[in-house]
Structure formats: C-alpha cells, structure tokens
C-alpha cells in the first residue's frame, strides 16, 4: 500500500479520463469503476504528517472522490462503480466490525454528497479480492459483511457470487438485508477461473438468484474485474471476452425463460 508523505492530497489521474477513452470505442452503456475513499484512506501514515492533519486529509479525500464520481457522471457513465473490495478484508483484519463500520461511514459521507437520483447511478462492488488469481478474504462469510454493506447509500450493489462455495446461503443473506430501491448485480462469472462458463450455467445461476431477488432489481455482473493482462497472464484477453459473452448470453437465456428484461 503506497503511503502519503505530504499534503495536500490530490488525484493526479481521475477515472473520467479512462471513461472518455472507453466511450470512444463502446457501443453500449459503459460502467466506470473508481477506487473507494475507504481504500485510499489507508494511504495516510500511521504516525501522521506534520502540518497536514488527518482530518484535513479525510476532507481532501472526500472532495477528490466526489469530483471524480461527478465528472464520470457528467461525461456519460451509465453507472459509476465504487470498488469496495477492502470491505470483506476489513472484517478479516478487525473481526469486531469497527473497521468495516468506519469504512462504511467514510463511504457514506462521500455518497451523501450526491442526490438520490445521482445515487441511483452509483454502485458499490464487493468481493474477496481477485488480483493475481487469488482472493484475500474469501474465508470471511458474507453474513458478516452484507448487513453492514447494505447500509451504504448507493443505488446498486455488485456482489461476487460465482466464486462462492454456497451461493444459496449468500442469496439468502442478500434477500434478508437488501433494502428497497437497491438493485443487486450478482457475479455470475469468475475472473480468476480459467474455465469459460457456458451460457446455460450462467442462466441457471440467474434462475437460482431470481428465486431470492425480485426480477426488476436483479442484474448480472462479473465477480470482479479482469486484471490487466500485462501482469496477470493466467486469463487471456480472449478468455475474458468469452466469459463476458457467456454472461450476456446466459443472462439473456434466463430473461427469456422468466420474462425479465
């Protein structure tokens, strides 16, 4: 984890630059991912920075995050997804839940800066980690995370499910703790599994999820992002596109079967 050595804290590159680049080639709506304030908050050193108090850092962090999200929304992002992968890790580091609650408070402070309409275009992603074909907190049960996660004021939740050993257990937790107006996008493709899921598998996973989540609030996603192919060669670019293609087809099969759209 990089460390901040001096204030003030500013983003050098914001996600809207990538969004602009992607939208030049995209022919479908684009979801733009951004890093969460809670992840970046860990950059402030333990011992503090002279003349740059922690409180000022938190304020600057919230301001920079708000600016990044707002610029993505303004540039036409269909959704802005805040990667909150450290949530599950926080439970692992601090089983008391205090750290997680602190992260959720910080992210909620950021989300509070947006209107309800804007928050319907903002989502939160959680997973046990997927860098270098490994997870960092898959051993933490969703039951410890999701009740707190749904306290976030986001309109969309992107939850990794394909890599879970007991999807029904997780779906049950989701059904229990999800709140009205929250849309749930479930991960149906595992980026760290080289095997390419078939559309039928995908369809079945969706059908299973539909038993727990109302169709109008249910969507599919990948469990996590496909890591840059330069440093993670276990999953090739072609494989990644095939997986995505299967997700789209499988979701469409499910929709055709159950009448969703």
């Amino acid at each position: 984890m990089p460390r901040l050595t001096a204030g003030p804290f500013r983003y050098r590159t914001r996600a809207d630059q990538y969004l602009e680049f992607a939208m030049r080639y995209a022919h479908v709506p684009v979801k733009q991912a951004v890093i969460s304030p809670s992840a970046l908050s860990l950059m402030y050193p333990e011992e503090g920075i002279p003349d740059y108090p922690r409180e000022q850092f938190i304020d600057d962090l919230l301001h920079e995050h708000e600016t990044e999200v707002r610029r993505c929304l303004q540039r036409g992002a269909h959704k802005v997804q805040i990667d909150f992968t450290e949530a599950r890790l926080a439970i692992k580091i601090d089983p008391t839940g205090s750290l997680l609650n602190s992260f959720i408070d910080l992210n909620n402070l950021a989300l509070s800066r947006f209107s309800p309409e804007e928050r319907q275009r903002i989502g939160v992603h959680t997973c046990p980690g997927g860098d270098r074909d490994s997870t960092h907190s898959a051993d933490i049960d969703y039951s410890e995370l999701l009740p707190s996660l749904f306290e976030l004021k986001a309109g969309n939740f992107y939850i990794a499910l394909a890599g879970e050993r007991d999807p029904a257990h997780v779906l049950g937790i989701i059904r229990k703790h999800m709140k009205p107006a929250q849309r749930i996008f479930l991960g149906v493709v595992s980026p760290i599994d080289p095997r390419i899921e078939t559309p039928e598998e995908i369809r079945d996973r969706v059908l299973e999820a539909a038993a727990y989540i109302p169709l109008e609030r249910l969507g599919t996603t990948d469990d996590c992002g496909f890591s840059p192919f330069s440093d993670d060669t276990s999953t090739t670019r072609d494989q990644a596109f095939e997986k995505i293609r299967s997700r789209v087809l499988g979701t469409a099969l499910a929709a055709k079967q159950i009448g969703g759209g």
């Binding site: 402030y44 910080l106 402070l109």
Partner: peptide, 10 residues
Amino acid sequence: VALQNAAAIL
C-alpha cells in the same frame, strides 16, 4: 491507520 482514521471519519 484505519482505526486512527476512524476517529477522523467520525
């Protein structure tokens, strides 16, 4: 760090 941040976040 996270716990120290928690106070500032609070």
